[in-house]
Every structure is written in C-alpha cells, then in structure tokens.
Design a protein around this nucleic acid. Structure first.
Lengths: 179, 179
DNA sequence: CGTAACATGTAACGCGTTACATGATTGG
DNA sequence: CCAATCATGTAACGCGTTACATGTTACG
C-alpha cells in the first residue's frame, strides 16, 4: 500500500484524538496543527471518502435532525497505519520561510532597509508568540504531546526573537566600526 | 501588477547575486536556499520566460560553441520589483514540519515509542547541523546576508537539538515520578 | 574514450488553497 | 428573528515536483 498524503495522516490523527466529523477535524486543526500543518475542506472531505474506501476509517451517517452529518472512526487498520507512520523516521526538516528568503537577498539593500527586514521578522515572531501564549493560557489540559508541541511553538518563537535581536545588534555594531 | 510567485523572486534574487543561466540558478539554489526554498527546472525555465515577458529580466542568447545557452540579467524594473518585495512585511512564519506533526499525535503511542520519536527528531537536526557546518567551513566568503542566513540555519538546528534533549529528559523524569 | 558537468526544456501528476454553493440548528 | 455555528461539498486554479528527453563540452 502506498502511503498517504500528510493530510491523510492529519485526519487519522485527529480521529484518534476524538474528532468525529470533517467539520470537527477542520476546527481542531485550525486551533492546533495549523501553524505547521494546515488542512482545508477542499481536502478533508475528499480525503475522508478516500480513507474510507481504503478501509482506514469507518463512516456512518448520523444526522442531527434534518442536518446531514457523518461520523467517522478509525478502524483497526487505520490505527495501525497511523502508528506505523508515527514510527517512521522523519526527513530533513522541511521549512518554507519567506522571511528567511528575503533576508538572504538583503545584500541588495542599503543597511538601514536590511535592518528593517530583520526587525519585521522579529515583530512577526513577537505576534506569533503572543498568539501562542494566549492559546497556552486557555483553560483545559491538553494531552501530553499536544501540550509539548505548543511549548515547542513558544520556544521556537522565543528563539527567533532572540536571534533577530542578536543579529540586529551585531550588524549595527559592524556598521559603527566600519564608520 | 499582481505579484510573482515565491520562486519568481528567488530567480530575481539569484540573478541579482550573479547567476546568469537557468542552470546556474538551480545550482546556486541547491547549495543555498534549498533548505527553506527549493526550485526545480520545471519551474525555473518557464518562469524565466515569464519574467522576460513581464520585462523584469532581459535574456540574450550566448551559446558556448554549439551548446545553446541563454544569459539573463535583471532589468531596472526587475531590480525594482525585487527591492519592493524585500520591503514588504512577512506573513506569519509558514512552517511545514512533519516531525512536529508526528510528535503532536504521540499520545497514541506508549511512552517508549514516543521518546523514540523525539530522539529521531533530534537525530535529524544533528545531521542537518553537520551538513550546515560543512557548508560553513567551505572556503570563500559569502555576502553578509547569505552568511547571516547560514548562521541562522546553524542556530536553528542547535535550538532544536537542545529542545529535544530537554523534553526527552522532562518526559523521562515525569515517567519516573509516576512510577 | 568515457563520464561528469553544462545546458534547456516538457508533460503528467500531486497536493493544497480559494471561492463558491447549500442548508439546518442553536442561542440570545 | 437573526446571527453564529454546525455541516457538507465542488470546481477552478496555482504552485511545485518528478520523470523524461536531448544534446554539448571539458577533463582526465
């Protein structure tokens, strides 16, 4: 069996964490993994049907009154697939960071504007940090690893802020010394 | 004028840094930005033609003997477009980290296997770090911001390694206390 | 003489987003 | 009654990768 797309595993995982409908999954993703792995309805619904055909999830219609609604559960095979995937070693970290790309080309710019780039990166991460802290402060205890990943996000943002500050200072100092 | 794709800007930027042919651009990307922004021939060649039509680059045929070859240069408009893009503020950091996604779902797993996940993430970043250090040790001075981004990669890998170690310890300690 | 490096390109596919369309139910 | 939330879906598009195809030139 060829392996699923990343989003396929997100769906399996979310069903494992208690999500029931496609709508559910989307909601949970938007409040959690979206920072490092998003998912849209345009993928979720077709993928759920695909997973069902593959026997990894089991869907039964359970409408709320006249509102149509379909509940999915992991099958044994689905849980096995998820666990197997969790066990495979990760590839090189796959980043896609536009702000880093801009920084890479900053030799094109006068120093002031380049510093501004660095400042904007820092600001972005400061906003990001604020958002994560807010999520962190919300009541209710997350499962161990859900909380762990949230802590990672916070640490990551803090790391980036500190790095930007250091480099801003370093560049300013170098500029002073050149003058 | 609607804005270019990320790869469009990579091409402009690389031409700014001295790349001349599509082949050149691909080579430089593979040795530098590929860690946070890759590019394939399947994109580069069509995009170069597209940028030429848009007047952002200027291409002239300059074969090496009978081997066909086309040299591109940034036009004034192309440089302006690049600088303008560099000046726009970045969005939220857009991460796509499969290993983090796996960690997120580790509550499904017995602690030993979950710890193994964390260990594998660490190993991945250790390899990554080794690779970047190797690149860093290569002779030849990079432009300021090219070097800055390389330093970022190294710091990022080190941060991740340290974070994994800390969390491994924390989880082990929590497990001991629970026992 | 062979192979690595130089050089350009295309077609098919996969993954994912955006925008749109539709409708029921709950709570203020 | 109205707005927010619940709920499901599709079509078009954009971006990017992979695999393939082709040929030249430099170097050991």
């Amino acid at each position: 069996m060829e392996s699923l797309s990343g989003t396929g595993y997100v769906i399996l995982g979310m069903l494992g964490l208690g999500a029931r409908t496609g709508y559910d999954i989307k909601g949970i993703v938007d409040r959690s993994t979206r920072f490092f792995w998003a998912a849209s309805y345009g993928q979720i619904y077709p993928e759920l049907r695909h997973l069902e055909k593959a026997g990894l999830v089991d869907g039964k219609s359970s409408p709320t009154g006249a509102r149509k609604r379909k509940e999915y559960r992991l099958t044994e095979a689905g849980r096995a697939e998820l666990v197997q995937w969790l066990g495979t070693p990760p590839q090189m970290p796959e980043l896609r960071d536009e702000s880093l790309l801009k920084l890479f080309f900053c030799d094109e710019l006068p120093l002031e504007q380049a510093l501004e780039q660095l400042r904007m990166r820092r600001l972005g991460h400061e906003q990001f940090l604020a958002l994560l802290r807010e999520i962190d402060a919300r009541p209710g205890a997350d499962p161990t690893f859900v909380a762990l990943v949230l802590r990672y996000g916070i640490a990551y943002a803090e790391f980036n802020i500190a790095w930007c500050e250091e480099e801003e200072q370093r560049l300013r100092k170098a500029a002073r010394e050149a003058a």
